[in-house]
Computed example of a mutant assay.
Amino acid sequence: MARAFVIVLDSLGIGGAPDADRFGDAGSDTLGHIAERVAPELPNLARLGLGAAAAIATGRVPRGFATPGAGAGFWAAAAEASRGKDTPTGHWEIAGCPVHFDWGYFPAGFPSFPAELTDALIRDGGLPGILGNKAASGTAIIEELGAEHIATGKPILYTSADSVLQIAAHESHFGLDRLLTLCEQARVRCDPYNIGRVIARPFVGAPGSFKRTANRRDYAVPPPADTMLDRLAAAGRSVISLGKIGDIFAHRATGTIVKGESNAALMAKSLELVATAPDGGLGFVNLVDFDTLYGHRRDPAGYAGALVEFDRWLPSLEAALRPGDLVILTADHGCDPTWTGTDHTRECVPVVGFGPGITGGAQGLRQSFADIGETVLVHLGLPAIGTGQAIGL
């Protein structure tokens, strides 16, 4: 029986979406600008069709990419139908559930959060107060306020261009369990504001050397309708979720959860998944380092290095596949490390499918990420949701 594996290279956009100008992102191009600045050698991604997918989105092949070669299956670019460019929106649409409503957002300037919300959180958590209360880069605001946080016991609250409230606190001085409890309370408090995620951002270290840890936790609202994960669960099929997939879907129908502290750790666990996943099942992987370590921090060289690491790993994945397996490489949004600011960018994403016997070639510009979820369901012999068009295999 067939198996499917969807690997999300978090934030690997391939050129501004048709509506990028509405988001201030016309001209953004995560992959293309990295290729221009750094020119990483990515022979396996090129062979499988990543450059050809980017050419569908932008009309040009990124620097250093050749046409697809032996082993290529199908490739496409996909535009996002949902309103927004954040992580849950992108992943839900990949899974067949576009978001056709507007999220709530907190303003960037101080104070970002309404007093009734912060007052409630102070009461809920027995806090002496809060710090931050503005839009900020997570690493920057920890460096700015980390020492005061340790001295006062006040957690650091901040937001971004996404529909999000983030809470940073020191694992030792504040306590990880206390931070997670506070975020659970904040999740309830944020519901009336239609906020997509509350994110726990624990860190360790001392002033001048603070470091965020792998104990991050996302508290998302559940998808508003069925996803491919619900379809698999209803059919009694196996779902294995690697990285932050479980958090993104509020742990609804996400099956077995496997965590990893880095892309490298998750790639190693992905090989274990391919070796053990049962017939008829789905492995759903998010590789977040591209986004958090390099996209948001506007580090093209670091992003390029992570892509090279992934490219070198790909042949081991291909060698582990069985007849009937389908792998789809994609992304949930862009985060162009050459762009202004530190936020996501509204871009098309790649849809690169391969596996033993998988064919199809160029599949054009898809009108929704939901085509990915529909393709997975059809490949696994399950009813499509109807929110997209499955790619003919």
Results as ranks from 00 to 15, higher is better:
V99R: 15
T340E: 15
A390N: 11
A275M: 00
R22F: 08
V327I: 10
A35D: 08
P68T: 11
G146Q: 04
G280N: 03
Y219F: 15
G59P: 00
F354L: 00
L157P: 06
T67V: 11
A235E: 11
F5D: 05
S172F: 13
V188C: 00
P323Y: 12
T227E: 04
A304I: 02
T256V: 14
L121V: 00
R297F: 06
E184I: 05
G364C: 06
A268D: 15
A234F: 05
A331D: 01
D371N: 14
D311A: 08
A55H: 05
N263P: 02
E143A: 11
R237V: 06
G153Y: 02
L266H: 09
T89C: 04
D191E: 15
A115F: 06
I156V: 07
I150Q: 15
R252W: 09
A390S: 13
D332S: 06
A384G: 15
V378I: 12
F23G: 06
F65M: 05
K211Q: 14
R83V: 14
T338A: 15
T213M: 10
L287C: 08
L127E: 09
G125Q: 09
P18V: 04
A161S: 11
H251W: 13
P98K: 08
E36T: 13
I240H: 12
T181A: 13
G49K: 06
A4R: 03
G305N: 13
G392S: 13
K244G: 09
K211S: 14
I372T: 15
V288C: 06
A55P: 07
I385V: 01
R123D: 14
D336C: 02
A26S: 11
F65S: 08
C97R: 12
A4F: 08
S316K: 14
D289I: 04
G280E: 10
K269Y: 13
V376C: 08
H100F: 14
D177L: 08
L31N: 09
S316N: 14
A214T: 10
P222L: 01
T227I: 03
G175F: 05
L9Y: 03
A4C: 05
G361L: 00
R298I: 00
G357C: 00
E184F: 02
E116T: 14
A253Y: 04
I240K: 11
V61E: 10
E309V: 05
I328W: 13
F74E: 02
A147P: 08
L117N: 08
I385N: 11
T292R: 14
P278K: 12
P337M: 09
A161M: 07
G208C: 03
Y193Q: 10
I391A: 04
I56L: 15
G281V: 04
E80F: 07
F354A: 02
G24P: 07
D86T: 03
G281K: 02
H296Q: 01
G129R: 09
L321K: 00
P315W: 13
C335S: 14
N263H: 01
T30Q: 03
A52T: 10
A26I: 07
G381K: 03
I150H: 12
A301E: 14
Y105K: 14
V288R: 12
P88V: 09
I391E: 11
H149V: 09
R201N: 05
G196Y: 11
E116M: 07
N286M: 08
G373H: 09
R312G: 13
T89D: 07
V352G: 06
D291K: 01
L326H: 11
